[in-house]
Design a binder for these strands. Structure first.
Length: 454
RNA sequence: GUGGUUGUAGCUCAGUUGGUUAGAGCACUGGAUUGUGGUUCCAGGGGUCGUGGGUUCAAUUCCCAUCAUCCACCCCA
């Protein structure tokens, strides 16, 4: 009996149709990135664990796929660690590589390693898969594509504004309505300082980030659990619950925070970015949202997150400014800012909303029907001429029933089929059939090429 | 890591209050239709009912375990 085959949890195969649709997403993002002056790079699938570990928080370390060393790796492992189940020490002895968890940290490594050859500010984009040993669920895979654009070596807030414009343009082209949420990590720092517990910044941000999902009461509970007093909580809640337009929220912010230094800086960041955006005709909404936090703890300035308005899905794009990511690798005072589109989630949203364009369904342009030996030769030559003219052509390889050949053309979504039999050979003509309308006409090869070239 | 869901044909799923030949739709193959597909009709192939154990005269069905799956939490794209 046949062996039951499958692929690892959280991974997927992609059919020709799915590839066409994925490429449509990648091309759209790539085109917009290029339009804003970004250039592509690629980095290896695996990085040294020393590069990856500790950059994504404790949770992140757990979610890294680690690659077992080659050869007799067991020899190098200290048996004591086996016995005491000291996983951390043990992994460092038997695994020195891991699959990349995102594209930002490898990029920071790339910049530090190639700093002498890079002209700053450096704008790069990168579209590659990343891996996380997460438990899969809706919109969550263990292998998925990220489409990153980052600027490194410039503090200017114009980049934040342009990144928002890129997001707007990409989703406009894809036909997805989104809300771009904007906040600053500095305002979150200010909140932690306001209650006099700066060390709780991570726990606080994690809790308030859930406001949308779990509601204000649960957030209160979580904040208390995180170590805030109820007095503290009553100070925090009005801030994250601020309502009104972006300008109104920003104004009220001043009163709530008074002259907290971090708050002033954070507000200025948001002000500046929104001022830049006034020059641009946004298709989607930009919302200043104090409850936006984002998990990755390397962010220091503006943070950005995008949600689809018409689909149930986690964030489909996110990013922010990180002031010290290259510092970890020994290159100080280089600020970076970037965004990342989650292509797989965007795919799921497009599918849910049925927004893929028709053209992603289309197969090669024309199939030539195979009627017999003589006809095959005639058709084969025609296919060569068609390809020379830049038209994707294919001759059906076997002499089987017409019905079967037409079924094949149908299944493969050929928009056109060419039929050549005895009559056509005698007259040196070709019968071209439009598969959507069913119309067909007989003419010379040049005419056929002209018709298909449009 | 925690909680729940579901495992029956290639795919999507019925079904059996435990009983001897396990069903449908889609897909596939052949025919109606030997140069015309996407519509229709007929026929056919394909399943040790996830795996292991238990209860029973008898288990695909009940019980236990295990694996896989999907969903939710944690966290995140």
């Amino acid at each position: 009996m046949a062996q039951k085959v499958s692929i690892p949890k959280g991974t997927r195969d992609f059919s020709p149709l799915e590839m066409a649709r994925r490429n449509y997403i990648f091309e759209t993002i790539r085109d917009v990135y290029k339009l804003y002056g970004f250039q592509p790079i690629e980095t290896p699938s695996m990085e040294l664990l020393s590069t990856l570990m500790g950059k994504y928080g404790e949770e992140g370390d757990k979610l890294l796929f680690k690659i077992l060393n080659s050869g007799d790796f067991a020899k190098k492992a200290n048996p004591e660690h086996w016995n005491t189940k000291n996983i951390n020490k043990l992994t460092s002895q038997i695994a020195e590589k891991g699959l990349r968890y995102d594209l930002t940290v490898p990029f920071a490594r790339y910049v530090v390693q190639n700093r002498n050859d890079i002209t700053f500010p450096f704008k790069r984009f990168q579209i590659q898969p990343v891996w996380r040993a997460d438990r899969p669920q809706k919109g969550r895979y263990r292998e998925f594509m990220q489409c990153d654009a980052d600027v490194i070596g410039s503090n200017a807030l114009v980049h934040e504004a342009e990144l928002v414009m890129i997001i707007d343009e990409v989703f406009k082209r894809l036909g997805i309505n989104v809300t771009v949420k904007l906040n600053s990590r500095k305002l979150l720092t200010a909140i932690a300082e306001l209650v006099g517990k700066p060390e709780l910044i991570t726990a606080i941000t994690v809790s308030i980030d859930k406001l949308d999902k779990i509601g204000i009461d649960k957030v209160r509970e979580e904040l208390i659990q995180a170590g805030l007093t109820s007095d503290d909580v009553e100070k925090v809640i009005p801030i994250i619950e601020l309502k009104g337009s972006n300008a109104e929220k920003l104004n009220k912010l001043v009163q709530l925070f008074e002259s907290n230094e971090a708050a002033v800086e954070g507000k200025k960041e948001i002000d500046t970015v929104l001022a830049y955006l006034k020059n641009y005709d946004m298709t989607n909404d930009v919302e200043f949202d104090l409850a936006l936090a984002r998990g990755l703890n390397y962010y220091t300035g503006c943070i950005i997150e995008v949600k689809a308005n018409d689909a149930q899905m986690g964030s489909i794009c996110g990013g922010g400014r990180y002031d010290d990511l290259t510092g970890i690798f020994g290159l100080k005072d280089v600020s970076g800012v970037g965004i990342s589109f989650g292509a797989d989630r965007i795919y799921d949203v497009l599918e849910q909303l049925d927004k893929f364009p028709e053209t992603t369904l289309q197969g090669p342009t024309v199939m030539l029907v195979n009627f017999g030996e003589k006809e095959m030769e005639y058709a084969f030559k025609a296919a060569i001429a068609l390809r020379k003219a830049g038209i994707a052509a294919e001759v059906y390889p076997d002499q089987v029933k017409m019905k079967k050949q037409m079924n094949y053309a149908n299944a493969k979504n050929f928009p056109y089929v060419i039929m050549v039999g005895e009559n056509e050979i005698n007259d040196n003509t070709y019968t071209l059939k439009n598969m959507t309308s069913g119309e067909q006409s007989t003419s010379s090869l040049n005419d056929v090429i002209n018709q298909l070239s449009n």
